[in-house]
Amino acid sequence: MPSTCKPSNLTSRRDALRLMGAATAGYALTIVRVTPLAATPADMRTAIEKITGGAKVSAGRVHLEIPPLVENGNTVPCAVTVDSPMTAADHVRAIHIVTEKNPQPNVISCRLGPRAGRATVSTRMRLSDTQTVVAIAEMSNGSFWSGSVNIIITLGACLEDLI
């Protein structure tokens, strides 16, 4: 089970599928073993410091929209919206998404500007486990803001191993 798997026992095909998840319909996998990789909250902090250059990150202004209960960690919809007028004088320069426990913390880094009209991006990501996802916005005045959400990943009940 995703919420209980220790990295060391991620050995079943189903775990492999769930963790790494390149599988789409009909795509034949040849994977039987998964490397016991998981980032730590410290890795996430390092990734965030790399994004901010060590600048202070304030909580707020950033909204993450992710379904709170996800049965398939392979494809997790995620939308980030930042409170910003998106004018030439006051806008969002970048939006980053990082995770706490994925093998590598970074998910995506987007660069945008006043021409976006609204500070909103959506994507679909992989989540290896129940964990915290953080979005960070870099504003045109150089300040950083963040929002986070905890996502519960359950095993895809009734899902077939596509191996």
Partner: peptide, 12 residues
């Protein structure tokens, strides 16, 4: 809204 579903290979 999904790429994967129950008994997928059998159904497909």
């Amino acid at each position: 809204a999904k790429d994967m579903f129950s008994k997928q290979r059998l159904f497909l």
